Amino acid sequence: MTTVSSPLAGRVIGLAAVPDPVFSGAMVGPGTAIDPVREPGEAVSPVDGVIVSLHPHAFVVVDDAGHGVLTHLGIDTVQLNGEGFELLVSKGDTVARGDAVVRWDPAAVEAAGKSPICPVVALEATAEALSGLVESADVAAGDTLFSWK
């Protein structure tokens, strides 16, 4: 069982509320989403594992069970070409839950005309594999979002 933690502080709104059909339709995988607090900060690893994909706006950490967890910082933020994002780790690095991965500013993302909402997705999972899925709550970085069997 893998416990997936919130990579940032904010309000959990659930995937269905994400303003992107790929995420809201769970095409990437099941999970939830966070509307982050509007202050500069760090997105942290939601699980212990290895960074297998790393972009300024998104990262994937794979744990020892082979579960890949995608954290996507905002919607359409790839169009910002890394502006306002600072990578704090490298692809291939081993991270612990709560380790800082990317420094960013959700308010700057919003000011640039993009949604700062952050999907947190269990890649290649079924909805049935997740339990305790949080769809609405205020969270701090490190609070549990769901468990993955």
Rank of each mutant, 00 (worst) to 15 (best):
A107G: 09
G25T: 07
A9E: 11
H55E: 15
L133Q: 14
V37R: 13
D138E: 15
V60G: 11
S115E: 04
A43I: 11
G31A: 08
V61K: 06
E110Y: 05
N81T: 01
W104V: 01
I117S: 04
L54Q: 08
V61E: 09
S136N: 13
E128P: 01
P40L: 02
L80W: 03
L8I: 03
H72V: 02
A137C: 07
V61C: 13
V139G: 00
S136V: 03
I117F: 04
A137R: 13
E42Y: 06
L15V: 12
G142N: 00
V60M: 13
V139M: 03
M27L: 12
V134G: 05
D63T: 12
V60P: 10
G29Y: 05
L73N: 10
A65L: 15
V62H: 04
V95R: 06
A16W: 01
L145I: 11
I13L: 07
F23E: 10
E124C: 10
V50Y: 00
E83A: 13
E83K: 13
V120C: 10
G113F: 06
G41V: 09
I13A: 01
V78H: 02
G113C: 07
A111P: 03
P40A: 11
A58S: 13
P116Q: 11
L123D: 12
A111T: 10
L145W: 05
V50D: 12
S90A: 15
D138I: 11
L54M: 08
A122W: 04
A43C: 04
V52N: 11
A141S: 14
L54N: 09
G29F: 02
V28F: 08
G14A: 07
V69M: 06
W148M: 14
V101P: 01
R38N: 07
V62L: 01
D35W: 12
A26E: 15
F59M: 08
T126N: 13
P56S: 06
H67R: 15
A129H: 06
W104G: 12
L88H: 05
D76M: 12
T32M: 06
C118F: 05
V50S: 09
I13T: 12
V69G: 00
A100T: 09
A125L: 09
D143R: 10
P119R: 03
G14E: 07
V37I: 15
V4M: 08
K91T: 07
V102Q: 12
D138S: 15
D35S: 14
M27Q: 11
P40Q: 01
P116Y: 02
A107H: 06
V101C: 01
V28Y: 03
A111M: 04
S136R: 08
E39M: 13
